[in-house]
Write a protein that binds this DNA or RNA. Sequence first.
DNA 1: CTGTTAGCGCATTCAA
DNA 2: TTGAATGCGCTAACAG
Lengths: 334, 334
Amino acid sequence: MADETTIYDIARRAGVGIATVSRVLNGSDRVAPATRDAVRAAMDDLGYRPNRAARRLAVRGPNRPRVVALMPMFSTNFYFSASRPLAQGLARANMDLVIHDVEDRPMKLRLVDRVADERSAEGLIMCSMGIGPERQERFLRLGVPVICVDYLLPGLPSVTVDNRAGAAMAAAHLTAGGSKRLGLIGGPSEAVAFRLREEGFVAAVGAAAPVARAEAITREAGRVAVAELLERDAQLDGIVAVNDLLALGALEELRSRGCRVPDDIQVIGFDDQPLMDALGLSTVHQPMPAFGAWAAEAMQSLLTNPRAEVPSRQLPLTLVARATTREAPRKRGK
Amino acid sequence: MADETTIYDIARRAGVGIATVSRVLNGSDRVAPATRDAVRAAMDDLGYRPNRAARRLAVRGPNRPRVVALMPMFSTNFYFSASRPLAQGLARANMDLVIHDVEDRPMKLRLVDRVADERSAEGLIMCSMGIGPERQERFLRLGVPVICVDYLLPGLPSVTVDNRAGAAMAAAHLTAGGSKRLGLIGGPSEAVAFRLREEGFVAAVGAAAPVARAEAITREAGRVAVAELLERDAQLDGIVAVNDLLALGALEELRSRGCRVPDDIQVIGFDDQPLMDALGLSTVHQPMPAFGAWAAEAMQSLLTNPRAEVPSRQLPLTLVARATTREAPRKRGK
DNA sequence: CTGTTAGCGCATTCAA
DNA sequence: TTGAATGCGCTAACAG
């Protein structure tokens, strides 16, 4: 918008030819110091910024594919764990990765439309979020593959886990350990994964079980949530949290109230993010790096052969029994 | 290299004009299905990939500044914590962030040269690593600002902490708590920050103190390292680790051997990465998000005004006394 | 519906 | 040391 000054402008301003401008731009030493300074002065005056696209086109720079990944980093450690293999996989395939931290829905739409409008990427990775049908259609027409990570979208390749089943598994584990009255700490409802886990829990335990939705993915929010749960039913003897941090917060609150875990109340989280083993939290393990690895591979094959058949994949969820539940630990206890 | 086919090639191959090719490329519906298919077939045959630079130039797409950040994500959680504010800050300033996970020195050099050769970025952020003088000079000539995060490089704006002082502070804390014989768990020597912390420790405690360098930044490596330390001096009663994960591993090993921490041996880490409070690890706190925030701001001002004076900044390190050391916790204990 | 013709902003010969 | 001319690959009118 504001940046429309070109080398022609500055050439005129400095009273030289565009070739000279180009020279100082590229740090050539075949320019008289005097003219160089004049050109630089002109550039400063006009607030000149070289146009990257034009430069690359002119130098016939390699046309490395670029893929942009949209992710709500806010939530958890999940994205960090998933990003690494993603970045490495794409790098190996010689592709650039642009990561955008999406804060809300409007921002998501803006970014998505931007890559479509500006053709700024040859591939799009949506993490934990969808993309409207019309936009999906648009990318299809543009020939820009879109894949989903941690989000199931019919018609698009995606990696997911069965969140419902995972939550049910967690509940069953507590029940097997002897808990009779379970409660759930849910998460912000914008996150589909949390909603699904909540559904899975309710389906398994019954609609009568108390549910408290944390407002953020923090330990503090977890503490608040258990408090709410206990207020609704002081007899609760089992807590399922849709996320490890929430479970950790619950744990802290319970302990500070003198509750013994897992003797009085069992607690289980979800994700098995790093260090949960050190903290002894029982949880549902999600193979986070596998999400990123799959995405990198899927994108690569899609960019190699646009009509490639990339099957969606459902990653396994495994229960990891540790110190906050009563059932005997099995494998994966690490 | 391999990708030199242009719309001219596919136009000829399909027996149509380049405009038509461009149309199918952009998903226009003003193309006869038959010709569309023919064009697509031609594109497939020739393995055509549109040149992004050319498209952007043609559509007069906005010339959003791009900054690439090189970081060795391998090491720790540090980069994750620092990346978020970086990404958000740059996004707010309307700049694109390309993150590269650098695995080793050769890779670093390749990437650095690439952004210089291809003029693929208007700004460069080096995390925890340097850039040779000649390359630095080259970027200067190209007018591409380079800034350093977690690495002190004379002549370049940088954010750092005083790693030496931090390690000394850690050692002093153990001493104040009564430890007489300290040992250090160092890190891989490629990482300058670890080297500096080691130096700081040695300077404070004396060259006679045992040092064991972990081969990786993992708890397992930490266990191995303490074992080595104890073998060298079974009377050790204080361990300083250059990183939290290493300290955690040490803690595990010590406990598994029946050592009581902090009664028999005090342990302190470095970084204060997330969850360290929950684990009760005493450590030296590093304001990780501040690194990213500074970088975003510095880069923005540099791109706004190339000749802006961006002063380097040294962030404060604070000691956080928790359950693995004997000194009474002060502020920041959380 | 489709082909022709101009640029987009810059790097680069090639002369001067 | 410098300037004029040419082309990079593609999109966008403008004719047909």
